[in-house]
């Protein structure tokens, strides 16, 4: 599935929820099933800065696609990371670089994208894009 299709799928899932509590409960569930980073990769160089809880992100190229793995001490942060991984993991660097993030607004998580918010979400997106840039062959 391409990035846009995955984003549309997530937007549809979130549209079923009536209030913030259901959205957060779902996010927490997603956090629990995140593609976990190997504990040997939970090192300082893989830490995302600007986060009140520790958040690790690692990427590797398999064939032409980037595989992201992550973990966080905080379950909400982990949930948001899981959503980002679902969108960006197993995609080509080129597609990652071209992707926009309007879906975050549509699923009611825009508040988490503020640069002054201490959750590191914005830094995580940046890091994902940096990885894509580094692995992009074109």
């Amino acid at each position: 599935m391409g990035i846009i299709e995955v984003q549309n799928e997530i937007v549809e899932e979130f549209s079923l929820f009536e209030d913030w509590m259901q959205r957060y409960e779902y996010m927490i569930e997603l956090g629990k099933s995140i593609d976990l980073i190997d504990s040997s990769k939970k090192i300082d160089t893989n830490l995302i800065k600007g986060c009140q809880s520790k958040l690790w992100l690692h990427a590797e190229l398999r064939e032409d696609r980037l595989i992201f793995k992550a973990d966080s001490e905080a379950i909400i942060t982990k949930g948001i990371a899981a959503i980002l991984l679902r969108v960006f993991s197993n995609q080509t660097p080129k597609n990652i670089l071209e992707a926009n993030l309007e879906f975050i607004d549509k699923i009611g998580l825009k508040e988490h994208l503020s640069p002054t918010r201490a959750n590191g979400l914005l830094s995580m997106i940046k890091q994902i894009k940096y990885y894509a840039l580094a692995f992009n062959k074109n």
Binding site: Y24, Q52, S53, E73, A74, I75, I76, T77, N119
Partner: peptide
Amino acid sequence: LHSYDIGTI
């Protein structure tokens, strides 16, 4: 539980 999660909720 992480304090950040509790504070967010």
